[in-house]
Design a protein around this nucleic acid. Structure first.
Lengths: 107, 107
DNA sequence: TTAATGCGTTAGCCTTTGCTAACGTATTAA
DNA sequence: TTAATACGTTAGCAAAGGCTAACGCATTAA
């Protein structure tokens, strides 16, 4: 899977990116936050690295993973490209509709 | 697959959402914009409908699909929830770095 | 130096995904 | 009314995804 948004969208990987936003961490540390195995997390990290969203540094017998700023910037760009002005307008309308419903003002 | 972001992230489905931002369309009309079959597109649309991002209306022998504003609003919310302040800061830093590189100002 | 420990990664399996081909059905034209 | 046509959806299959178990390897301790 080469698509940046698709790679980032998977729930476990999304959570990994959020955890890494706090700073670098080892596979084991990260895995402790998930119900799945170290192995599963390692594979998610390898995929994230492959698309340039994270990178790793070796220290002792640990591998410290960290976010790759440039990759994350590309991710943001791709989302913004998807979320066009048309969609923005559409959702704005939906919000109005929602407020109307809450205040029972649609008679 | 029940996850909203994950469903929306798949490239073909992302494109479908963008096309539907212009207004409603039939399966055949939408499929004409893709290299894959009508059937494939129909299945993507059914999945999008299942998570509430689109809905359909029957007219003659056509089914007109359209975006579901409330669902799209939920999608936006989920993305914003993912894209924390920490990530925003991180990407801001990356942008600075980028400008520096462009202007060769990093001696 | 050698054994033991703990780290991250591959091997292998099952499930899910995305696709085309075949289908059923409603609508239109004869 | 009947036949033909065009629409969208299911059936079935090959490929990809995500997971645990097994592994290799580096590091630490004896």
């Amino acid at each position: 899977m080469l698509d940046l948004l698709e790679v980032a969208a998977e729930p476990n990987r999304r959570r990994l990116l959020q955890l890494l936003a706090r700073g670098e961490a080892t596979v084991t540390e990260l895995a402790s936050e998930f119900p799945v195995s170290r192995s599963a997390i390692s594979q998610h990290l390898l995929l994230l690295a492959e698309v340039g969203l994270v990178s790793a540094r070796k220290d002792g017998r640990n591998r410290y993973y960290r976010l790759e700023e440039q990759g994350m910037a590309r991710l943001r760009e791709q989302f913004d490209a998807f979320w066009t002005t048309e969609l923005d307008q559409l959702v704005a309308d939906a919000s109005e509709l929602k407020s109307k419903n809450i205040t029972q003002g649609d008679s």
